[in-house]
Amino acid sequence: MAAQALSAADYARKLANNRLGLWLFILSDGFMFAGLLVTRFYLLGEHRPHVDQTVGIIVTAVLLVSSFFMNRAEVMIAHGDRRGFLFATFMTMFLGIVFMAGVVGVEWQLAPFKPDTGADGAVFFMMTGMHAFHVLTGVMFLAVVFINGLRGHYSAERHYAVEACANYWHFVDIVWQFFYPALYLIGTVAGS
């Protein structure tokens, strides 16, 4: 998906730029998520929202497994295994959608609070909402990679879009590994 017909040297140069650029973007986005974590501990302290533990552990497991498939996809395209790459990309996308359905479709409905009922609701819906938005953009990115993969746009030598998508997906996954304990594990539920 880079510009057309670059020489190997030009491609390597652009690849180095793109890699650094994506890492900087992830650093920047990480500050935003860190701000949300600060918000959670500032407003709720040692309390945590009353959320469903079963749903929480399931969606977390789903997201972790999706990162496994993401990694498979990247390794397979690097080895020129196009079919395996397409399958693993599809699985990542599918598990990403399952995660979103779990958070937005189940957890949001089960929660005993609403966004506007108090600090619990505000923090919980803001954090999961912002994260789900990132998962959504990741799924869209995966869809683009999948379609272009079907068209055969990636080779073992040139597949930066897959790598970028994988790095972004792992980043979104890692963010959740911080959000999950912050929302589900740390502290006590008020009144219990």
Binding site: T39, Y42, L43, P115, D116, T117, G118, A119, D120, G121, A122, V123, F125, M126
Partner: peptide, 16 residues
Amino acid sequence: FGMGFFDPTKGGNVVL
């Protein structure tokens, strides 16, 4: 959405 991050009546905090 009425989310009370900075609304003390809903447990928010303006200093945040």
